[in-house]
Amino acid sequence: MELRAVRCFVEVADAGTVTAGAERLGVGQPAVTRQIQQLERQLRIRLFDREDGRLRLTSAGRDVLPVARRLLRQAEDVSTAARGVAAGRLQHVRLVAPGTTRDDVLAPWVATWGADAPLPRIDEAQVDGIYQTLRRGADLVVAPVAPPRDFASSIVAELGLWAYVAPTHPWASREGIDLTELADADLLLLERSFHARRIFDGSMNAAGLGVEPTAQFGSPVVAQAVAASGRGVCVLTDDPRFGLVPLAIHDNEGRALTVRLHAAWQRGHHAAATLERLAGDLASFTRERYGRGR
């Protein structure tokens, strides 16, 4: 079935005559007649009856007409979407990030988007293998590990790794803490699947210090809740909750521990330029929200 024939049918039905329908379409009357006859043969129904020099829709024609209108609208939607793809635009964008990054970075960022921005979907994925989601339909991945070199990428944030303590903790009046002091503390740490935990363990090992947590958690929120109850010091990159006080963690050379966030996308993505602009906007957002290291 050709869309041209369907369009002729709809225009003639609206205009009431073949002549008027042909004028609307900007084609000759014989061509319109042939298109409608061809459509009737394909559908095996009669669409019009002639009455007093005008065309009147048959019962079958009245049933088919709304479906034909819907088909033309859908065809136009396809054309519009294809033009957007060709121009590198995105109507929808699928973002993928670990849970902490999703909740503390991407969700607040998306909240600043306008109505003309792509409609976002944000999925959670574990750090290990997260960039493989770009080959399974994700548009933009934001993660605390560097992507493989075959992806386009940029650094969008450098977030602090914090030691959180309750307001009643002896350290609560301080601004920072070093690794040696933390080694003797009651540590409430995330499980080793979290990149923040790996950064902390690596820094402790580099300083010649062992890591013996009092407890380990699969949820940053629960870790903070336990710290807020006065049971120890939790170490993570998440935004503070429950009134916890953040302390910057410094290595033996006095440098603050941080976690870099990378944004990555497929180099051959039809909207690669748009994704690059989104990554730049995310970098601007994190600088304004956190500054360097927060």
Rank of each mutant, 00 (worst) to 15 (best):
M1N: 01
E2R: 06
L3H: 06
R7L: 08
C8A: 10
F9R: 06
T17W: 10
V18W: 08
T19H: 06
A22I: 07
R24W: 01
R24Q: 07
L25K: 05
G26E: 12
G26K: 12
G28W: 07
V32F: 04
T33G: 05
Q37L: 07
E40H: 10
Q42Y: 13
Q42W: 14
L43T: 00
L43E: 03
R44W: 09
R44T: 03
I45G: 03
F48P: 01
E51Y: 10
L55G: 04
L55H: 06
T58A: 08
A60S: 15
G61S: 07
R62E: 11
D63Y: 08
D63E: 15
R69E: 13
R69P: 10
R69Y: 13
A75G: 11
A81Q: 11
G84K: 12
G88R: 10
R89W: 06
H92S: 11
V96Q: 08
V96I: 14
A97M: 08
G99V: 13
R102G: 10
D103H: 13
D104P: 10
V105L: 13
P108L: 06
W109Y: 14
V110C: 10
A111H: 14
P118C: 14
P118V: 09
L119Y: 14
P120D: 13
I122Y: 09
D123Q: 14
A125M: 11
Q126A: 15
V127S: 14
V127I: 15
Y131S: 02
Q132N: 15
T133D: 13
T133F: 14
V142A: 04
V142F: 02
A143D: 02
A143G: 05
P144F: 03
V145N: 00
V145L: 03
P147I: 00
R149A: 01
F151S: 00
I155L: 14
A157K: 02
A166I: 03
P170C: 10
P170H: 07
R174S: 07
G176V: 00
I177A: 05
D178N: 06
T180V: 07
E181R: 08
D184H: 09
L187T: 00
L187P: 01
E191S: 13
E191A: 09
R192W: 09
A196Q: 05
A196Y: 01
A196T: 00
F200G: 02
A206L: 02
G208F: 06
L209E: 01
G210A: 01
E212K: 15
P213R: 04
Q216V: 03
A223M: 09
Q224T: 06
Q224R: 02
A228G: 06
R231Y: 12
C234P: 04
C234D: 07
D238H: 12
D239V: 10
D239L: 12
F242E: 04
L244Y: 08
L247H: 02
L247E: 00
N252L: 07
R255L: 12
R255H: 14
L257N: 00
T258S: 05
R260N: 04
H262W: 10
R267Q: 07
H269V: 06
A273M: 13
L275K: 02
L275T: 05
A279Q: 06
A283W: 12
S284G: 13
F285Y: 12
E288Y: 11
R292L: 15
G293W: 08
G293C: 13
